[in-house]
C-alpha cells in the first residue's frame, strides 16, 4: 500500500500548492462501491470491467490541475478524480486503474482501437469527434481564454490578437480555434502548455491561449508574471470519451456523474484539485444525446 500513501501525499501537496499551510488534507477517498459483475447486465461493458477488476483510463499527464503526473508516477488532478469516481462505481479500487497518457492528437484513435476503456482528458465534446467516439457528460464546461504578461496593455480579448504571437499546444482544440477564427494571429505550437510559459515571460510570444481552467493554474503559480484577460470566447464542455455505440456504458457513466453531483463527491473532487485555484462551479448538466 506504499504506492497509495505516496499518492495521497502528492495529492495533498498539490492541493497545498497555493496555500502556505501544508497540513491540509486534500485527500479524496473514493472507496470502491460494493458491487459485483452480476449487478450489471450480462455482456455489458460494465460487467466486463467489474469482472476484470481493472480499467484503463486515458488522461493527460502534463495538464496542471486536471491531469499531471509527478516523478512518483501517480497522476493527480480533477480528471483523475473523475476517473477514480467512475472506477469506484464499477467496484474497481484505485490500484486497479491503469492510467495511460493520451495526448491531444491520439484520443479518438486510442478509444477506437480499444487501447483505453475511457478517456478523461480535458476532452472537449464536439460534432467532429462525435462521428468517431461517444461522449458521456459533460462533467465541466470550460472556455477558451487568454493568458498575457502582467504588463501587457494591448491585448484585452481575442479580437486584439491580429499580428500577435499566440502560443498553444500541437493538435489541440484551442490551437485549431485560433487558426480558424482568428487567422490574423500568428499561432505558435509546442508539445506542452508548460513550454509556452517561458516564451511568454521572455516576450517571444504575446499570449498563451487555452481553456481558462488551465491558464488559472499558471496564474496561481506566477501571479506576478501572468494574468488572464478578456471573456471566455468559446464553450468547451469536457466529456468522457468512450467507444461509439456503447450506449449502456454511456448511460451508466452519465448516471454516475449525476449521482456524484447529488451526493457531493463531484464537489469534493473539485475542491481537492482545481478548486484550490478556482471557485467551485455549478456542475454541468449532463447531455444525454
Amino acid at each position: 500500500m506504499r504506492r497509495r500513501s505516496t499518492g495521497l501525499v502528492a495529492l495533498a501537496a498539490v492541493a497545498a500548492l497555493t496555500l502556505s499551510a501544508c497540513g491540509d488534507d486534500g485527500e479524496t477517498t473514493t472507496e470502491p462501491a460494493d458491487v459485483e459483475a452480476a449487478d450489471f447486465p450480462e455482456g455489458s461493458t460494465m460487467a466486463e470491467l467489474a469482472d476484470a477488476g481493472s480499467i484503463t483510463i486515458g488522461t493527460k499527464f502534463d495538464q496542471p490541475l486536471f491531469g499531471l503526473v509527478g516523478p512518483d508516477g501517480n497522476p493527480v488532478g480533477f480528471d483523475v478524480e473523475i476517473g477514480k469516481l467512475i472506477a469506484a462505481e464499477l467496484g474497481i479500487a484505485e490500484d486497479g486503474i491503469n492510467w495511460v497518457e493520451t495526448v491531444s492528437a491520439n484520443r479518438e484513435t486510442f478509444i477506437k482501437e480499444g487501447q483505453v476503456d475511457i478517456v478523461v482528458a480535458t476532452y472537449t465534446i464536439n460534432d467532429e469527434r462525435k462521428q468517431e467516439v461517444d461522449f458521456a457528460g459533460p462533467y465541466y464546461v470550460a472556455g477558451q481564454s487568454l493568458l498575457v504578461r502582467t504588463d501587457e496593455t494591448e491585448i484585452n480579448g481575442p479580437d486584439d490578437l491580429a499580428g500577435k504571437k499566440v502560443c498553444s499546444v500541437d493538435g489541440s482544440t484551442p490551437a485549431g480555434n485560433i487558426e480558424q477564427n482568428y487567422p490574423d494571429a500568428e499561432l505558435v505550437t509546442f508539445g506542452a502548455y508548460t513550454d509556452c510559459l517561458d516564451p511568454l515571460r521572455n516576450g517571444q510570444v504575446d499570449a498563451v491561449s487555452t481553456d481558462n481552467v488551465i491558464l488559472a493554474g499558471y496564474v496561481a503559480e506566477s501571479p506576478e508574471d501572468f494574468q488572464i484577460v478578456g471573456d471566455l470566447f468559446t464553450e468547451e464542455p469536457y466529456g468522457i470519451g468512450l467507444t461509439k455505440g456503447d450506449d449502456d456504458f454511456r448511460t451508466f457513466i452519465n448516471d454516475t456523474l449525476e449521482a456524484a453531483y447529488e451526493d457531493g463527491r463531484w464537489a469534493t473532487a473539485w475542491e481537492a484539485t482545481a478548486g484550490e485555484v478556482l471557485d467551485t462551479p455549478e456542475p454541468a448538466a449532463v447531455d444525454r444525446y
Partner: peptide, 25 residues
C-alpha cells in the same frame, strides 16, 4: 517518442518540469 507521447527519457524530463514548474527545466 516525446512528440507521440511515449514516456521515454525526454518525455519524462518534460513531464517532470511540467509537474515541478518550468524553472526546473
Amino acid at each position: 517518442g516525446f512528440i507521440v507521447g511515449y514516456p521515454e527519457l525526454l518525455r519524462t524530463m518534460q513531464l517532470n518540469y511540467s509537474f515541478f514548474g518550468d524553472q526546473y527545466r
